[in-house]
Simulated scan of single mutants.
Amino acid sequence: MNKNMTIPNFSSSMQYKQTPANPIRLIFEILLCILLIIPAVLWATIKLFLKSPRKNIRGQVVLVTGAARGLGRELCTRFHELGAKVVCVDVDGRGCAETAKEINRNGGTAMSYEVDVTNRRQIAAMHTAVRTELGPVDILVNNAGLVSAHMFVNPESEQLIEDLVNVNLLGQIWMNREILPSMLERNQGQIVAISSMSSMSGLSGISTYTATKWATNGMMESLYNELKTLKSTVVSTTVCPYFIKTNPEISEHLELRFPEMPTSFVGKIVMNGILENRRIFSVPNHFMFPVAFVRILPDNLQLLINKIFYVNIIGFQKDKELMKKYQR
């Protein structure tokens, strides 16, 4: 060994002092937060038992994606019943047109647009047409989404993975980026994301779907904070529903402790949350807290609770073959 060679002192270089900026001020700010926690929690608890005021949306323009069927059609109908002008958007042009036709038949105002939410040009063209025909969008409900399962290592799932990410996540991003500037200019409006309870707990067999919903929640939380930074009154709302009974082909791949929810039940709760300008909530309302609580428990307890309140995804044929191949 070269006697003149210097041996680096790794122990000293690995040290890291976590000294915060303005430490004295930090202490006072923490003490202030502690003082505010108790009254804030008490007030939040009281508000759970109080009926929150609902805003009037009569005459407002509400755009709903995924409007051809299921929850999208349910929400379109409910917005119409409250006097809103409804913009129905879906890649399924025929189903979307049927939703709008039903609303118009019942004396409402609705327009339908066949749009692929992954296509930015189609989104921009649709938005231009909506502003010309009905005016600026007051409420955007990002409901369009794909629901499908696949084992993580399924070699046949590449296209499905791309479609899930493009529709469930990028579709919402492109819609928000198109509509939000108009809301910011007017300093009014509401962006709604239909997420999922799977965004609170990763289930076996739906890794990509779950990833898109976790990402949706993160996007909406960042958007909420960005709006606060801008001191904007534009509202962001994230909805996390449990499984909804909308498609028999999906239902046959589910084994659930609690059954799927009917769209009418979900629609009522979602509408209440939107009209009350809630930031984030689950459907049913009481699901979010226990799911979040379970996540802080030790792993063995989490596994036990998940077995009791099971949600099993029954895969497609290739997934079943892979399960037999890899399962120990």
Rank of each mutant, 00 (worst) to 15 (best):
104 N>G: 05
183 M>K: 11
20 P>H: 15
273 G>S: 11
21 A>Q: 08
136 P>Q: 00
10 F>C: 04
311 V>W: 02
221 E>Y: 08
57 I>L: 08
200 M>G: 04
299 D>I: 12
322 L>D: 00
211 A>M: 06
251 S>Q: 03
326 Y>F: 15
115 V>R: 02
257 R>N: 04
309 F>M: 12
126 M>N: 03
185 E>H: 07
173 I>D: 07
71 L>D: 12
107 G>C: 12
63 L>N: 01
72 G>E: 10
298 P>D: 06
321 E>C: 12
69 R>C: 01
93 G>P: 05
307 K>N: 14
69 R>M: 06
212 T>H: 05
75 L>Y: 03
54 R>Q: 15
253 H>Q: 09
286 H>M: 14
297 L>H: 09
235 V>K: 10
301 L>V: 15
165 V>L: 14
91 V>L: 15
111 M>C: 08
77 T>C: 12
144 A>W: 10
265 F>G: 00
233 T>N: 14
243 F>S: 05
56 N>G: 04
188 Q>C: 12
148 S>K: 10
100 A>W: 10
150 H>P: 00
90 D>S: 13
176 N>M: 15
211 A>N: 08
232 S>F: 14
128 T>W: 05
173 I>H: 03
189 G>V: 11
74 E>C: 09
72 G>V: 07
216 T>Y: 05
282 S>V: 07
9 N>I: 09
289 F>M: 10
236 S>N: 06
52 S>L: 12
94 R>M: 07
189 G>M: 11
296 I>W: 13
